[in-house]
Design a binder for these strands. Structure first.
Length: 481
RNA sequence: GGCGACAUAGCCAAGUGGUAAGGCCGUGGAUUGCAAAUCCAUUAUCCCCCAGUUCGAAUCUGGGUGUCGCCUCCA
């Protein structure tokens, strides 16, 4: 099986081939750090982190870079609101970002370049673009002349003549910048300093970089002229990624990235989750109410390119589903000793692995891969229940161990890990002896048809996490949790 | 107005030419004093609609309809 990916550039799936054998240079457009991240950001960060894990598991060495945009009007506005500096706002939300992602179990990128740390590279690019005739200065600003780049629009599949300036309604055609542009779709590479705003020296006067240029500079600086994978949210396809291509390729004459992958948006009641619509839920609010693993399952159960509806019900479903998976993942911790699992060896079930790989190799179909995990988890859970109820496993022990090891391994690729239950509740709770006594009391009570007393004991034990299982013949067995 | 994506059971969702994965919910039976848990069974004659290609299509082609995204804030 070979990995196939859907490339936005070609609007089709193709085999994934790297520039250097077994190495992947990967760049993800990160966030502008002016506020707490919401579920939409979580989807992007989580999906591409899992993609990176999968590539690593598949044998690639991945160099994964994700940026922080820390120069931006929105950050400045926030700084004014909070009576602080752009830098302080950026630091605050970068710290929050790392906190949120850690809670979600999203791994760290290999580097997190920031716009403010990339000024030299940015200025060099702007300079080169100007030298090559792709950029022009205007009253302290510098603009990119999109008409000079014949391939402009190739990523987003649009032609300049088809585009309608201002159609999104977000930009006034009469705004301050408009008169400086030679053409409505030209975009700012450099913006002249405004009174009281942070600024950097440059050949065009004091100012700050435009938004798109930082990614071009960072990719070039960190990964080279051409990278393998450039990823990000689908809403960045145009203009952000289109502009990155225009900037980078005009200078280098080489493709910026061989594969452009975009994830779908989170939808709330039919509309994209976004700051401007106010229909967002922050990651921290979400995690106050749902387990991180449930959120992960919610996200990974839908193909990454599809829109994903956020509803309470969907998260609740994901929570229930996670319980099933978790049970399976804990199988070895619960029953391994009893079944005599060898802790050292890690035998794998090749059949399951190849099915998983076949599913996920098709454009990162994690949902298809998850189906296999559930299949195994359910099977293990069944075996565990038989073990609890009957006292013996009916399935071959080695087979179970292999399935379990495989489940744990595959789940780990997707970032699913279950914490074995802490034994604390046990130490604070009742001793085995005390439980046995209570169980016996209940058996006696039931023999005397005193069901009220029996049920009371059952309820008390249940409240402490001890479940009683009545078996035919008046026997009662129990287990913790 | 332009460009693009998607449309599969009650809900979510995989499958992209060979006769419908998986999850959640539900139902029937076993078991039980009743529960819980568990076990067994069960839940789309059919994949938005209409035409076409084919021995055969959810899967390809054409035409509709609907939903969503983007058209310089955007994950």
């Amino acid at each position: 099986m070979t990995l196939t990916v859907y490339n936005t550039l070609t609007r089709s799936k193709s085999e994934f081939q790297t520039i250097e054998a077994n190495k992947v240079r990967m760049y993800c457009c990160g966030i502008t750090v002016y506020d707490y991240c919401h579920l939409g950001h979580a989807r992007t960060c989580l999906i591409w982190d899992v993609v990176r894990r999968y590539l690593q598991w598949s044998g690639y060495e991945v160099n994964y870079i994700q940026n922080f945009t820390d120069i931006d009007d929105k950050i400045l506005n926030r700084a004014r609101e909070e009576g602080t500096s752009m830098e302080a706002v950026a630091e605050k939300y970068i710290a929050a970002y790392f906190e949120d992602m850690e809670r979600l179990g999203v791994g760290q990128a290999d580097a997190y370049p920031r716009a403010t740390h990339t000024l030299d590279g940015i200025k060099r690019l702007v300079y080169e673009l100007e030298q090559k005739g792709f950029a022009y200065p205007a009253e302290g600003d510098v603009y990119y002349a999109v008409q000079k780049f014949p391939e402009y629009g190739k990523l987003s599949g649009r032609k300049l003549e088809d585009m309608q300036a201002g159609a999104s309604g977000r930009v006034g055609l009469e705004d301050a910048e408009a008169h400086k542009k030679h053409y409505p779709f030209d975009f700012a590479l450099w913006k002249a300093a405004k009174q009281g705003e942070p600024a950097w020296e440059s050949p065009w006067g004091n100012g700050r970089p435009g938004w798109h240029i930082e990614c071009s500079a960072m990719v070039r600086e960190r990964l080279g002229d051409t990278i393998d994978l450039h990823v990000g949210g689908g809403d960045l396809t145009f203009p952000h990624h289109e502009n990155e291509i225009a900037q980078s390729e005009a200078v280098t004459g080489k493709p910026l990235a061989n594969y452009w992958l975009h994830n779908g948006m989170i939808i709330v009641e039919g509309k994209k989750m976004s700051k401007s619509l106010g229909n967002f839920i922050t990651i921290r609010e979400l995690l106050d109410r749902f387990e991180p693993m449930a959120v992960r399952l919610f996200i990974l159960q839908t193909q990454y390119r599809k829109p994903l509806d956020f509803t309470e019900e969907a998260l609740t479903t994901a929570t229930n589903s996670w319980e099933t998976l978790k049970e399976g993942l804990l199988f070895g911790d619960r029953y391994g000793e009893q079944l005599g699992f060898a802790t050292s060896s890690t035998p794998q079930n090749e059949e399951l692995i190849s099915r998983f790989k076949a599913a996920v190799d098709d454009d990162f179909n994690f949902a298809g891969g998850l189906a296999i995990l559930f299949e195994v988890a359910k099977n293990l859970n069944k075996a565990g229940n038989i073990l609890v109820h009957e006292g013996t496993a009916k399935t071959d022990t080695q087979e179970l161990e292999q399935q379990w090891q495989t489940l744990v391994e595959l789940a780990k690729i997707l970032g699913f890990e279950a914490q074995p239950e802490d034994r604390e509740s046990n130490s604070q709770g009742l001793s085995d002896r005390e439980i046995e006594d209570l169980v016996q009391q209940r058996i006696d009570a039931r023999k005397n048809k005193d069901y009220a007393a029996g049920d009371r004991i059952r309820d008390e034990l249940q409240a402490q996490g001890i479940t009683l299982i009545d078996k035919p013949g008046g026997m009662t067995i129990w287990n913790r949790g």
